[in-house]
Write a protein that binds this DNA or RNA. Structure first.
Length: 773
DNA sequence: CAGTGAGCGAGCTTCCGCTTGACTT
């Protein structure tokens, strides 16, 4: 029996802390929140001050009862959840769920998992901060009200199983609006002029590139300028040399780690978090869900030592970074290696690469600035007022650049030097050639997952623990898709002045190809439009920031939490009722044209199962025909001809064993149907052109595969089979599945043994009844 | 995974933020 029970949120943290404290302390983890609003209903008593109905989360019952037992036996229970709104609520919920007496509980907090920080915390316990708990309560209730009133509205007005929320709906809005910007973008072109001049550097002749400060809008202007250049003299008019410095990026937070891992390693945010979790659990890095830039003094000291050892004392410059991001709660340290002197780790390639990135970033953040010398050379033209500018950059002292340079979304890494040969004012320059190249303005870039996280963080929307789940939610709801897109070819002009002649060339470039970018779907666009029209306040990019200010006031005791909720809920709920009663179902219906053979109208719209085309209208005699859009088609771009193609299915291929063989396209792609069995088509098979021969081939192949799945059948009961599944053999009976006990061999089971297993064990859930994730 | 789409209506879906394994047919 231990005298002291310490409860933290994460088990990895518990293990570390247990090592710092003596035998008198037992450290356990509660695995995050243990109580939450009931999911069965709203979970909030609207009519009586919005009192939340918190229950012990179903998946936390086991850990709660275990902790409750330990808490009962302990003399003092130390509640060491994180020092932020959510952490304070966790502590309060633990008091309630474990029924801990106030007198034997202590609330402690620390921001770093170091021995001195823990011991210091133990010295300074406090009580539960009720105001902070109320702030969490307000946050939780607001999110529940928004989510659980908006989502059902969407089910009624658009289609079932949709969702809306304070965070996800704004994330979708960003992607929809970016797509609109790109679509409406008018790509104007201009001519960028670059001159190449030859400069003598001792015996060597060095080419120097200089860009004209002005761009020409028309080719006539560009050519006229080149003509002027052909008879011009060029002169160095001015040389300016300025010192400059570059500073390292701060250490990683969740958001910046996701961004850099995406840019430098090509990881999705979910992948980055999965790997970071492994590194954390194996003790290699500190906690990976954080918005703090802070490093412990211990860590900074270790970094200093490491840098001195590797590069020398000149390369050290320790720094304390402070966060600028909105709503940061800073309960942890920045993400850093646990031990700075561990330069690399064992493990698979992606673990090594992510660790390497974290190590370099952290160490570099404590290194000296890079000292640069930037040179700007202005080149005059005897026949024109325009100027050429050549730029050079010399690294005088590399500092942190020796180790690490953050990459950017806009352009590939532009690190490194660009050295100019020595030049003097009034030096004449020999022109080798001048190019005027047509350049098109770029539309804003589509979001990658990581760019979206960056944007959300800037807006103060979402938390480190929710960035990755939010991105997966909006994809799971099919509001957005992550896709690669083929680019298109575009022509551009280049005029080159060389040896007194101007040559015109037409060249091509590939533009607009995308890799792993987020695109809005038809449903995403429709839902976004609907929410914007009726709930502008919630869709406002500042909504979260505004309510966060109020949560802060609640935390400071200046605002009563349920008064704040009341003020929000009144108008919000009225809007819900108004929209529910005052608007019709929206489908985004659009008339594409009429079918030339039947004369019926053809529409495209969103149905119960997503985007579809419809031929004809429903009336007393007629039923319209429907067909789902194919992958890659969209309501916005589909043409009448493409729509008519979709109605060519289902198609009868022929007759086999007295039954029709038909081909059609369903929820999961094209399929063949025969005797009420379904056979998926391969990617290479086109349902519009597939032949009867090929269909029979597919049918026989599938039947053979199914036959091989059967381990045993029984004469006594036809429905009872032993099958070989993805996870090994199992018993199947009337669509119920049963596990085979570990001590039995599937091939040798008798009919009686199978019946015994079925009566004695519960059927495992089949995928049909299981909730799809 | 399961192969649909008038309308009828029961019964289902849903939020954000803390944290990790469980366990699949």
């Amino acid at each position: 029996m231990t005298k002291n029970l310490v409860i933290v949120e994460s088990p990895a943290k518990a293990k570390t802390i247990e090592g710092f404290l003596g035998k008198e302390y037992q450290v356990k983890s509660c695995f995050g929140h243990v109580m939450d609003l009931s999911k069965k209903d709203l979970g909030v008593d609207i009519d009586h001050g919005f009192v939340p109905r918190y229950i012990i989360s179903p998946d936390k019952k086991k850990i709660v009862s275990e902790l409750k037992k330990l808490a009962g036996e302990a003399e003092i229970v130390w509640l060491a959840s994180d020092e932020d709104r959510e952490g304070e609520a966790i502590a309060a919920h633990l008091m309630e769920a474990l029924t801990i007496q106030e007198s034997k509980s202590r609330r402690i907090v620390f921001h770093e998992i170091t021995k001195p920080a823990i011991l210091e915390a133990i010295e300074h316990p406090r009580g539960i901060d009720r105001d902070l708990v109320n702030a969490q309560q307000a946050r939780r209730v607001l999110d529940r009200l928004v989510g659980f009133e908006l989502s059902p509205l969407l089910w009624k007005k658009i289609k079932p199983a949709l969702s809306a929320g304070r965070v996800q709906s704004v994330a979708v809005r960003l992607i929809v609006e970016r797509e609109e910007e790109i679509r409406n973008f008018k790509s104007a072109s201009s001519f960028r002029v670059v001159g190449t001049f030859i400069v003598k550097n001792g015996k060597q002749l060095v080419p120097v590139e200089a860009e004209l400060t002005r761009r020409f809008t028309t080719q006539e202007e560009a050519v006229a300028f080149l003509e002027k250049c052909s008879e011009a003299d060029f002169l160095v008019e001015e040389i300016e040399t300025k010192p400059a410095k570059k500073s390292p990026a701060p250490p990683f937070t969740t958001s910046t780690l996701q961004q850099e891992a995406s840019r430098k390693l090509g990881f999705s945010v979910a992948n980055t978090m999965r790997i970071a979790q492994d590194l954390y659990e194996s003790g290699k890095i500190t906690y990976m869900r954080t918005d703090s830039l802070n490093l412990s003094n211990l860590a900074i000291g270790m970094a200093k030592q490491e840098i001195t050892g590797l590069f020398g004392a000149d390369y050290v410059k320790t720094r304390k970074y402070t966060t600028k991001s909105k709503g940061a709660q800073e309960a942890h340290e920045a993400i850093r290696p646990t031990y700075m002197n561990v330069r690399s780790i064992d493990g698979d390639k992606s673990h090594k690469r992510l660790y390497d990135l974290i190590w370099k970033r952290t160490i570099a953040s404590q290194m000296a600035d890079a000292l640069l010398e930037k040179t700007t050379v202005t080149i005059g033209i005897s026949t024109s007022q325009e100027k050429f500018i050549a730029k050079g950059e010399l690294i005088r002292f590399d500092g942190f650049l020796k180790l690490y340079l953050e990459s950017s979304d806009e352009e590939p890494n532009n690190g490194g030097e660009k050295i100019l040969p020595p030049m003097k004012k009034n030096d004449p320059l020999e022109m080798e050639q001048v190019d005027a190249q047509q350049k098109y303005a770029q539309p804003p870039p589509r979001y990658t997952e990581a760019m979206l996280v960056k944007k959300l963080e800037e807006l103060g929307i979402g938390r480190p623990s929710t960035y990755a789940p939010t991105i997966s939610t909006i994809q799971r709801r099919e509001y957005v898709v992550k896709e690669d897109r083929q680019g298109t070819i575009r022509n551009f002009l280049v005029f080159t002045l060389k040896d007194g002649n101007i040559i015109r060339q037409e060249k091509t470039e590939k533009i607009g190809s995308e890799k792993a970018k987020l695109f809005p779907t038809d449903i995403g666009i429709l839902v976004n439009q609907f929410l914007l029209e009726h709930f502008q306040n919630i869709m406002d990019y500042n909504f979260t920031a505004t309510v966060e200010e109020q949560f802060d006031e609640i935390a400071e005791g200046k605002l009563v939490w349920n008064a704040m909720i009341q003020e929000f809920y009144g108008p919000f709920h009225s809007r819900i009722v108004q929209t529910l009663e005052g608007t019709r179902k929206v489908s985004g219906e659009k008339l594409l044209g009429t079918d030339p053979t039947t004369g019926l109208n053809v529409f495209v719209k969103i149905g119960r199962y997503g985007p579809m085309v419809q031929m004809g209208e429903a009336d007393m005699e007629n039923k319209p025909r429907f067909a789902a859009l194919k992958k890659g088609q969209s309501m916005e771009s589909i043409t009448l001809d493409e729509a008519l193609e979709l109605f060519k299915l289902p198609r009868v291929l022929g007759v086999l064993d007295q039954a029709e063989v038909t081909v059609a396209t369903g929820r999961f792609g094209p399929y063949i149907r025969h005797q009420s069995h379904f056979y998926s088509l391969m990617r290479s098979d086109d349902p519009l052109t597939i032949t009867m021969e090929r269909a029979i081939e597919i049918i026989t192949e599938k039947k053979k595969m199914d036959q091989e799945k059967i381990i045993r059948e029984f004469k006594e009961e036809k429905e009872l089979k032993i099958l070989n599944g993805k996870y090994g053999p199992y018993i199947s009976y009337n669509k119920l599945n049963f596990k085979i006990p570990k001590n039995k061999v599937a091939e040798e089971l008798t009919f009686e043994e199978c019946k015994k297993i079925m009566t004695e064990s519960k059927p495992t859930k089949s995928s049909k009844s299981r909730k799809s994730k």
